[in-house]
C-alpha cells in the first residue's frame, strides 16, 4: 500500500511541484497518473522511491513513513520498487542479459539467483531470443521491454513507470501497457505516469489527474480525455 498525506514538494525554492497531495494506492492496484508535462506526475513517482523528499506531509510505503527514512535504509526501500523510464536507461555496452542481470548484481544477488531470475524476466517480456543482443540492435519497443524486465527481475512489490510509452508508436505503446498489466496481475502494484490518451482510455483503470501540483480528479475506470478537455489542451 502507498499513501501520501498532504504532501508538498518544492524544488530549489521555486513554486511547489506538488501541493497538499493526499492519495491512497492499494496493494495490487494499477493506476494511471495523468496530466500535462511539468505538472507533477514524475515528482509524484519520485516521492515513492525516495528520489524526492517532500517539504511537508508524509509518504507511507508498506506501512512505513519513508520521509523519515535514513539514507542508509533507502536501498532497502528501492529493492521493493522497479522503475521503468521513458528513455529506457539501458547500458549500451551491456547485452540484454547483462542489463537485466545488472539489477540483481548491483544488490549482491548470488549467481544461482541471477541465473534463475534473468531468464524468467526475459521470458515474461518475450525477449529470450534477444538475450545476447545489445540495446542499440533493438527496436524502441524491445528496448522498453528490456527496461521492464530489469525493473521486475527482483520481483518488486511496486513498479513505477514514468512515461513508458513516450518514445513509442501507438501499437507498441499498447503492447507495453499490456505487459505492465500482466505484471500487475502477477501481484505488483503498478503506477504509470503518462499523458498518452490512447492507452489510458483503452485500459479503463483508475486515473488520477494532477494539474499544477494538485490532484484534480481521481476516478476508477477513468478516462484521459476528461481532464485534457477540461484543461483545453486537446481540441474538443
Amino acid at each position: 500500500m502507498i499513501q501520501t498525506l498532504d504532501v508538498s514538494v518544492v524544488y530549489n525554492g521555486g513554486p511547489p511541484a506538488l501541493r497538499d497531495v493526499s492519495l491512497r494506492i492499494e496493494k495490487g492496484e494499477f493506476i494511471f497518473i495523468v496530466g500535462p508535462t511539468g505538472m507533477g506526475k514524475s515528482t509524484f513517482l519520485k516521492l515513492i522511491n525516495r528520489e524526492a523528499v517532500p517539504a511537508k506531509g508524509k509518504v507511507i510505503v508498506a506501512g512505513r513513513d519513508i520521509t523519515k527514512l535514513e539514507a542508509r535504509h533507502i536501498p532497502e526501500l528501492r529493492r521493493q520498487i522497479g522503475v521503468v523510464f521513458q528513455d529506457f536507461q539501458l547500458l549500451p555496452q551491456k547485452t540484454v542479459w547483462e542489463n537485466v542481470a545488472f539489477a540483481l548484481q548491483a544488490i549482491g544477488a548470488d549467481r544461482h539467483r541471477i541465473y534463475r531470475e534473468v531468464p524468467r524476466a526475459l521470458e515474461l517480456v518475450s525477449l529470450t531470443h534477444k538475450a545476447n543482443s545489445y540495446p542499440q540492435e533493438l527496436s524502441g519497443g524491445e528496448q522498453q521491454r528490456v527496461s521492464i524486465a530489469r525493473a521486475i527481475v527482483n520481483n518488486p512489490a511496486i513498479v513505477l513507470a514514468d512515461e513508458p510509452t513516450g518514445n513509442l508508436d501507438p501499437e507498441t505503446s499498447w503492447d507495453i501497457v499490456q505487459l505492465l498489466s500482466k505484471i500487475n496481475i502477477r501481484g505488483s502494484t503498478v503506477v504509470v505516469a503518462t499523458h498518452d490518451k490512447y492507452i489510458v482510455d483503452g485500459m479503463k483503470k483508475r486515473v488520477v489527474a494532477i494539474e499544477n501540483g494538485q490532484v484534480v480528479r481521481d476516478e476508477p475506470g477513468g478516462y484521459h480525455h476528461a481532464v485534457t478537455e477540461e484543461l483545453g489542451i486537446l481540441p474538443p
Binding site: N49, E51, R72, P75, E76, L77, R78, R79, Q80, I81, V83, Q89, L91, F102, A103, A106, I107, G108, R150, N154
Partner: peptide, 17 residues
C-alpha cells in the same frame, strides 16, 4: 553516470556503487 543512477534505483548501497 547512467550506470550509477541505475545502481542507485535498483537499491545498490553507496558502498556497493
Amino acid at each position: 553516470r547512467r550506470e550509477i543512477r541505475i545502481m542507485q534505483l535498483v537499491g545498490a548501497t553507496n558502498w556497493f556503487i
